[in-house]
Design a protein around this nucleic acid. Structure first.
Lengths: 112, 112
DNA sequence: ACACCCAAGTTCTGATTTGGAACTTAAGCC
DNA sequence: GGCTTAAGTTCCAAATCAGAACTTGGGTGT
C-alpha cells in the first residue's frame, strides 16, 4: 500500500496522514508557522534536500494548505504562505511541540 | 540528513518527528488509541507490511511510547500497549482527526 | 503420529524514494 | 563579462519499502 492510498480511508487521521504524514512535510509546515516562506529557507531550516522541498511544496500547494504566489515579477520569485486551511493545522503542531518539550528534552550539555 | 538526526534538534516539533514522523508510526499509534494491541491487528488495520509493523513497533517500544508484554506464555505471544508517555500523545492525534474531518471529507457516494 | 492452523516475526528480491551534489534559468550588480 | 541570488531540476548511488514466502513454537482434529 502506498502513500496516497490513504486519501479516501474511512479514518480522518489516516486521510490527514496521506497529506502530511511525513517528517519533511510537517517540518515545512512548522517553518511556515515560524514565518518562513521561501524555498531556500525551507531547505536550510529543515535540512531536507532541495529535491524533497520541491516535492513537498507541490503537494502542499495541491492540497490547498499552502498558496504559491510571486513576490517578484522579474526575476520570477515565489513564496509559499499558509491558506486558512493550513492555518487550522496549528493545533496539531502545537500538540507535537508540547509533547516534544515534555517527553524529549535535549540532552546535551550533560550536566556540564 | 536522515531520520534520527532530528533527535537532538533544538525544536521540540522536530524531535517529536524524529520518533513519530512517518505515516505508519502514527497509524499504529491511532490503532493503539482505538484499543488494538497485537501485531496482526496493526498490520491489517493500517495496511502496512509486516516488515514495517515490526520495525515501527520496535521504535515505539525503544522510545517508551509503547510497552511490549506477553499475554500468553506458551506459546509466547505479545501485545503492545500505550505507556503514559504514549497516552499523552492523544492531543496530537485528536488534532489530526479534527483537521481531517473538517478539511478532508470522504468524497465517495458522490451525491448518489 | 501427522496434517493443518494461529500468532508473531524474519527473510528475500525487485521497485520506489532519498540524499547529495551539480546544473539550469533569469535577472541584478560591478 | 563575470559574480551573485533564488528557485528549481537532473543525475546517480544508497537507503527504504512492498509483497510474498518462510520460520518458530505451539495448539487442534482425526
Amino acid at each position: 500500500m502506498k502513500w496516497t492510498d490513504l486519501d479516501d480511508n474511512w479514518c480522518p487521521v489516516a486521510r490527514t496522514l496521506s497529506l502530511v504524514g511525513d517528517r519533511w512535510t510537517l517540518l515545512i509546515l512548522r517553518d511556515c508557522f515560524l514565518g518562513l516562506s521561501r524555498f531556500d529557507q525551507f531547505a536550510e531550516s529543515t535540512g531536507a534536500t532541495r529535491h524533497i522541498v520541491s516535492d513537498r511544496l507541490k503537494r502542499l500547494v495541491d492540497a490547498g494548505i499552502l498558496e504559491k504566489s510571486a513576490y517578484s515579477e522579474r526575476p520570477k520569485r515565489y513564496e509559499y504562505v499558509l491558506t486558512e486551511k493550513g492555518q487550522e493545522f496549528a493545533p496539531a503542531l502545537i500538540a507535537f511541540k508540547d509533547w516534544g518539550k515534555k517527553h524529549l528534552p535535549v540532552r546535551r550539555a550533560t550536566q556540564g
